[in-house]
Simulated scan of single mutants.
Amino acid sequence: MAAGNLKRRLKAGETLFGIFCDIPSPQIVELAGLIGYDFAFIDAEHTTASLDGVEHMVRAADTRGLASLVRVGHNHHSSILRHMDSGANGVLMPLVNSAEDVLDAVAAVKYPPLGRRGLAHVRAAGYAVNTGLGAFMAQSNAETVVMVQIETAEAVKNLDAICAVEELDAVFFGATDLAASLGYSAQLQASGSEHPEIIKLVLDLGYKAMKAGKPVGISAHSLAAYNRWRSAGFQIMATVASLQFVAGARGLLKDCRPGS
């Protein structure tokens, strides 16, 4: 299971680079795996991706050994369950504000005794064709990933309690939403906040989460941003597919049409 590899690599302290699939496309997921990304965030929060569409994207990740985490639209048990049953290796839960929010996500991702996820002959279990449900349940509990986004002022206040949840695997900082939540909307860049006060805040919060034993991550859309966060100990970096397409296409067009 790709998630097991992802979880082991996080625990080993490796730096992992992933892609936000903000364009609902199995082909983009597959290309990300071929290019060499470590994981894909399949965005079901800010896109029109359907349940079927997410499953096809998860399947594409599987074909290339790419770990897939679905950024779900709601912290709702049935929504998480259906994405997990499709074979996703875990979830990225947005807008988490409290330890209770984290526990709700854990309960939906994990089977008893760690959670309350229902067991069935689903794709994630290989339809129980070659592996018994009991063995699958144990493997899933050991390997699936629960990652949360810290992107509100309330979450900042509750970060210690959030990080105290044992089954939480990693913390990802949503700098753009965090900046907006704290009143920095006018200073936001298209690819996230580069306001020095937000950078300092995220660094401070990241150190706090790392001290609590949680790997931390953030979006990095340039080498300079990557180097900043990596030197601070951030392990999880992600870039947005559409932003990379725009940057690459615009750069090529500029080279081919000087002065345009």
Rank of each mutant, 00 (worst) to 15 (best):
46 H>K: 06
47 T>M: 10
48 T>C: 12
49 A>Q: 03
50 S>C: 06
52 D>M: 09
52 D>N: 07
53 G>R: 09
54 V>N: 01
55 E>Y: 04
55 E>M: 07
56 H>Y: 10
56 H>W: 08
57 M>Y: 08
59 R>W: 01
59 R>V: 11
62 D>C: 07
62 D>R: 07
63 T>W: 11
63 T>H: 13
65 G>T: 10
65 G>S: 11
66 L>Q: 04
68 S>V: 09
70 V>S: 01
70 V>F: 00
71 R>K: 13
72 V>Q: 05
73 G>E: 04
74 H>N: 14
74 H>S: 14
74 H>P: 06
74 H>K: 13
74 H>I: 02
75 N>P: 08
76 H>S: 14
78 S>R: 14
79 S>D: 15
85 D>P: 09
85 D>M: 05
87 G>A: 03
89 N>W: 08
90 G>R: 06
92 L>A: 13
93 M>S: 09
93 M>H: 06
94 P>H: 14
94 P>L: 11
95 L>E: 03
98 S>G: 10
98 S>W: 03
101 D>T: 07
101 D>P: 00
101 D>Q: 03
103 L>C: 03
103 L>Y: 00
104 D>G: 00
104 D>C: 02
105 A>H: 00
105 A>R: 02
106 V>Y: 04
106 V>C: 04
107 A>M: 02
109 V>R: 03
109 V>N: 03
110 K>F: 01
110 K>C: 11
111 Y>W: 13
113 P>D: 13
115 G>V: 05
115 G>W: 00
116 R>C: 04
118 G>A: 14
118 G>K: 05
118 G>S: 13
119 L>H: 12
120 A>S: 15
120 A>Q: 13
120 A>V: 10
120 A>M: 04
121 H>W: 08
121 H>Q: 12
124 A>P: 06
125 A>Q: 01
127 Y>F: 15
128 A>F: 07
128 A>Q: 06
129 V>R: 15
129 V>P: 03
129 V>I: 14
130 N>F: 15
131 T>Q: 15
132 G>C: 13
132 G>F: 07
134 G>Q: 14
137 M>E: 13
138 A>E: 15
138 A>C: 09
139 Q>R: 14
139 Q>F: 03
140 S>N: 06
140 S>C: 10
140 S>I: 06
141 N>L: 07
142 A>T: 10
144 T>P: 01
145 V>M: 09
145 V>Q: 00
146 V>F: 06
146 V>I: 05
147 M>F: 11
148 V>K: 00
148 V>Y: 00
148 V>L: 02
149 Q>L: 12
